[in-house]
Design a protein around this nucleic acid. Structure first.
Lengths: 126, 126
DNA sequence: AAACATGGTTTCAAGTAGATACTATAGGAG
DNA sequence: CTCCTATAGTATCTACTTGAAACCATGTTT
């Protein structure tokens, strides 16, 4: 299948890639995708693992990611119904990049915190 | 310098990496960092290149990125004053990952749009 | 004098996120 | 029988953030 890569440009306002970037440039979406890398996870399990996310935002974010084809939703008719979220192959192509971003944050925290402190205590007029 | 990598965990609510992820999980910040990869750019040049960004948001985002030590701000006393923004070495370590994310969006647009259409036209109860 | 360029700040309306409470179903404890 | 637990969400209300537009200060061009 041939694709015209030049037809898409994230810098353009009306380019559909902006819609995708909007979705990816979302703290919760990144954390969810990263968390799903190791296998399927249930709703409340995600809620407990990703500290600070609310039920509403988790629900909304999962719905958007499913709509984008990045993860799939499987319902099991267990006693309290179980819902499992799994990365799709498309979603799987993303996680490596996403993980790199999340892990950059972990590795470069010290430098960023130092920069913030230097900035905040700088004597120059700001 | 030894760092305790295990001390940081993006899934934890109060972990400082969350602050960094908040910054990176920002559409405009990603676009700015990506745009600066090829060299220093002036304020209004960024504004024109990144279609749809407002002056206020550009100004605020640049300030945050400068505070985080990801880019530096240089003022030149030209006739209308010129301000140039440049990636710092720290910022430079990020751009490859950021570029990968932006370019994932460009490469996988077709699949995402197809998934959205399939989702929206699905007969299943949603 | 009016328009335009620079790099911003201010203001205000509108949209979004978060906290909390609520729904529905069914098993087990008392 | 009633209460508490668990599941996976939805509804509501408030507080914050975003975006659009106007404004500011300077100086050069028309």
């Amino acid at each position: 299948m041939m694709t015209m890569l030049q037809a898409y440009n994230v810098y353009e306002d009306r380019c559909p890639t902006r819609l995708v970037l909007d979705r990816l440039a979302d703290k919760w979406a990144l954390l969810i995708l990263d968390r799903l890398e190791s296998g399927p996870v249930r709703f409340n399990h995600l809620r407990r693992d990703i500290k600070g996310i609310s039920q509403k935002v988790l629900s909304q974010t999962l719905k958007k990611l499913e709509r984008d084809g990045l993860l799939s939703r499987a319902v099991f008719a267990t006693v309290p119904v179980t819902v499992e979220y799994t990365l799709t192959p498309l979603g799987r192509t993303l996680t490596q990049t996403v993980a790199a971003l999340a892990h950059w944050a972990e590795h470069n925290m010290d430098a960023v915190l130092a920069a913030q402190e230097a900035y905040d205590t700088a004597p120059s007029a700001r």
